[in-house]
């Protein structure tokens, strides 16, 4: 059974104008209902598989973003939601903005839009869900390669 059947989501507001946050919440409402895919909005990085980040990363929260990412158990994927999270967007030239999410952590899916549309977000998240399985498979192959390698060394 694929692990992508139950992706739990963590939403972090880096320095969003809240426009994207509201759309993320809209995706959990009965109209869009992302729980159809088994997605639960958990508040806990240790339970999460998908990290959704809205807004660009600034000097203050760069460490927070890194810490949240490192607390999530593998396999995990990151979705940058909204143009600010993709590359800094309208706030790009601000003195405190470092840029998009990928300036501090690796991003798997970029979802554009200002604000991000719930439909686009769901599309992006379903792409991310597919990547979860790929990552798990890659981890298994990597582990078996290592075992072969150690066997040869003996």
């Amino acid at each position: 059974m694929k692990i992508s059947k139950s992706p739990w989501l963590l939403h972090y507001d880096a320095s969003s104008c809240n426009g994207c946050d509201i759309e993320v919440l809209a995706a959990t409402t009965p109209v869009y209902d992302i729980e159809r895919f088994g997605i639960i909005n958990t508040g806990n990085p240790k339970h999460a598989d998908i990290l959704v980040i809205t807004g660009g990363v600034n000097a203050q929260n760069a460490t927070v973003v890194k810490q949240i990412y490192s607390q999530m158990p593998d396999p995990k994927v990151v979705v940058a939601a909204g143009i600010c999270a993709c590359d800094g967007g309208i706030f790009k030239d601000c003195y405190n903005i470092l840029g998009g999410t990928d300036t501090v952590i690796p991003v798997d899916v970029y979802v554009p839009g200002c604000a991000v549309r719930p439909e686009a977000l769901i599309d992006g998240i379903s792409k991310a869900i597919a990547m979860l399985d790929e990552k798990k498979q890659a981890a298994i192959e990597h582990a078996s390669c290592q075992i072969h390698y150690e066997d040869k060394e003996d």
């Binding site: 059974m1 059947k5 209902d33 895919f37």
Partner: peptide, 28 residues
């Protein structure tokens, strides 16, 4: 629960998917 909230909600087997996934994940 999801029907009571007027949503389509997850499939009936969702708790099974959840548990299988959890056993497939590493633990911190």
């Amino acid at each position: 629960s999801s029907r009571m909230q007027g949503r389509q909600g997850p499939p009936f087997l969702q708790p099974l998917y959840d548990i299988v996934k959890l056993f497939n994940k590493e633990a911190t």
